[in-house]
Amino acid sequence: MTDPTKAPADGVGNGGPMVRAEGVRKSYGLVEVLKGIDLEVQQGEVFCLIGPSGSGKSTFLRCINHLEKVSGGRLSVDGELVGYRQKGDKLYELRDQEVARKRRDIGMVFQRFNLFPHMTALENIVEAPVQVRGESRGDARERARALLERVGLADKAASYPSQLSGGQQQRVAIARALAMQPKLMLFDEPTSALDPELVGDVLDVMRGLAEEGMTMIVVTHEMGFAREVGDALVFMDDGVVVESGHPREVLTNPQHDRTKAFLSKVL
């Protein structure tokens, strides 16, 4: 089966925005966490999501690779709907395998790293390319070593996650996501669980990725990173987008009162 996302024939794929959200809503029971999110993430852009905890930014991020099911509106990645297929004006839910196939192209980095503790750093990185993409173990190992080198952990290939510091674990987690050669990377507060002195190493790796033109959506509290590396920034509160624009503008000259109040606390 060929990858439909790569086929230019369907007309939507290339050229358009990487992620497009139109009125995206999400509720758990009666609680509405996302109340209609509209935004566009362009190819090659570093897109920062900021906001107080509980504002729905992580939930939105998790909707993009369908870890959470969208309950209203439209959300598409690279021109294709997330979690559904449209035929005429009817929506069909995707099967588990189809969802899994789409997730291959979207890397995700978690706040709590979520490395596989029973595998070494190298095995963590090799796992998905071999199991999911069917790469040969030899090739995958070679690329994994290169990726470890790139995140500055070439000497930690044989270490188990429990033997690594938080910052090292997070860098392995980034390498693990990159091993699938994703077209989009999602970062869910990647430095929030780290000791302050370890944050820098992780941000350096992310900065390098941005320079190479990776499309990245970053939920973060690191305003310095957002200002310096971000191409676009959205401030979310209570399930809605309050303010958006270029990071430097929003962070230095916020228009909205809620944005001002939030920034005065974190900056």
């Binding site: 997730r103 291959r104 979207i106 995700m108 978690f110 979520n114 999911v132 693990r176």
Partner: peptide
């Protein structure tokens, strides 16, 4: 931990493979 399932799913692993390779060994 549920994060393990999420990490495996985010990498594009199917439910069955996640169970066999990630969850059961742990």
């Amino acid at each position: 931990d549920e994060g393990q399932t999420e990490a495996a799913h985010a990498l594009g692993m199917s439910r069955a493979r996640t169970m066999r390779r990630i969850i059961l060994p742990q």
